[in-house]
Design a binder for these strands. Structure first.
Lengths: 250, 250
DNA sequence: CGGCATGCTTGATCCAGATCATGGCCAGCG
DNA sequence: CGCTGGCCATGATCTGGATCAAGCATGCCG
């Protein structure tokens, strides 16, 4: 499989922005359009962007305990965050795709609480946190955006509480992955999972074998087609129904 | 059991603060002491406090979908937040004790994403969110505090990812509850759980029967003494060891 | 006081998913 | 080429905790 710097969907180029625009996927991008005011401040924000990368699969972007001095916006590729205990077992907390912001939770005690690892080849924008914090005091929308990012992460984390059947978890995972792609203009039903089965299993708190078997059952029931890491969602409504046990919660 | 407005530890009175001080438990309290500057702004914050309550056990403080217009600081008692699906099943997300701040995650889409319910008799401080957001732009420490509160909630939520043996979850839960009490000057080993077993079970994603049985095993092993909702942690080190599977993650 | 409800415990049984074990597939590489 | 090492699939077995089903304590209220 091609593992290139623009992720696994090579037909769309990376939009790196320019002197006057943010990368098209960036969370901060929407600050520009809806309200035109305080452009000077946004210009400052724009100026403190630092493009970093590429990070190749397995490379660490920051580690648990590192000094928290910046947040990162994913520009291309997929990043996972994880905890690791001293016996080497890891727990994946989340996957981040282009447009997502990583690292804000380091603010609690000035250290990153988790490790961020590139899943495939990753390009990032780096924002110095002191600078962005200062700026957010002057730009209410920026402050609000940062709060919203954290609230969203929190909601995602809470979603996973409770125990649900393996197939429901998997259906939910696939649908959400599709949604992410769809938000960025790709197909929401024909998707490529950049991470190995083991990572999916870990993230969903299942054994890798269970992921395999559950995928098989979904395939036998005609809900999806799977070949390697390529997945086609054949009957999204049925998948939604399956995932209902999770997504219904309001 | 006495269910009074100061929670289950009647020997300490509620500190409601006065014209010049925050309630002693309040998250915002620590803004005052360490740095003396911008007292005018803090005075504003103080002035917009609205004491609300009491809420009695089972009363709802806000509900999923309600317009998000305020955050609440717990002054006395215990609050739980929960999601509910249309079939009436609920999932408890967190318990909040005096000093904790509730509701910040409503910022994402201007609606509270969960329902907050009083576990016992609860007194709160209410802060209008528009006011506090405006103020936080002028008081960097306030902004930082709000970020830290969310980061903390996020970390707590992430902690629960992964599946751990029932006894480890319970040991972790008891130790954390003790720590909360200890932080506020109570015993960290002699504790009262204000919520029914079913709530503990739900929070830990276990069946109530499993909570009972696990408690029994902990008692048989001499790690705790349990009588009703009174729990004594007899061998905290052993409990820590048991909970290690969870807490070790860094 | 008795009766009923609620919450807690305990026992018996069952099952989803973990674990153990094996074999296939494909890519990279000497 | 054939070898090696990841990764994935699938079968067989085991088990922790869910579920089903009683009992038991406590407290409320007529």
């Amino acid at each position: 499989m091609l593992d290139n710097a623009v992720g696994l969907w090579p037909e769309k180029p990376v939009d790196d922005g320019d002197a006057r625009h943010f990368c098209s996927t960036c969370v901060f991008g929407r600050l520009c359009l809806p309200r035109g005011y305080d452009k000077a401040a946004l210009h400052e924000l724009h100026c403190l962007i630092e493009h970093v990368g590429p990070f190749h699969a397995g490379a660490e972007i920051f580690r648990t305990g590192d000094a928290f001095d910046a947040v990162f916006s994913v520009r291309a590729g997929v990043v996972k965050t994880q905890l690791r205990d001293e016996r080497g077992r890891e727990q994946i907390l989340a996957f981040y795709t282009p447009g997502d912001l990583i690292g804000l939770d380091g603010i609690e005690d000035d250290r990153y609480p988790c490790t961020a690892v590139a899943v495939d080849t990753v390009m990032l924008c780096r924002f110095s946190f002191p600078a962005i914090a200062t700026l957010s005091a002057r730009v209410p929308d920026l402050q609000r955006t940062l709060f919203a990012v954290m609230a969203r992460d929190l909601r995602m984390a809470q979603w996973h509480k409770g125990d649900f059947p393996a197939e429901a978890r998997l259906a939910d995972f696939l649908l959400r992955w599709g949604q992410r792609l769809a938000q960025r203009g790709y197909s929401g039903t024909q998707l490529t999972l950049p991470m190995p089965r083991g990572d999916i299993a870990n993230y969903l708190s299942l054994a890798p074998e269970t992921v395999s078997r559950s995928l098989r059952r979904l395939m036998d029931d005609g809900l999806v087609e799977v070949r390697g890491r390529e997945v086609k969602l054949c009957q999204p409504p049925a998948l939604v129904e399956l995932a209902r046990a999770i997504t219904d919660r309001a």
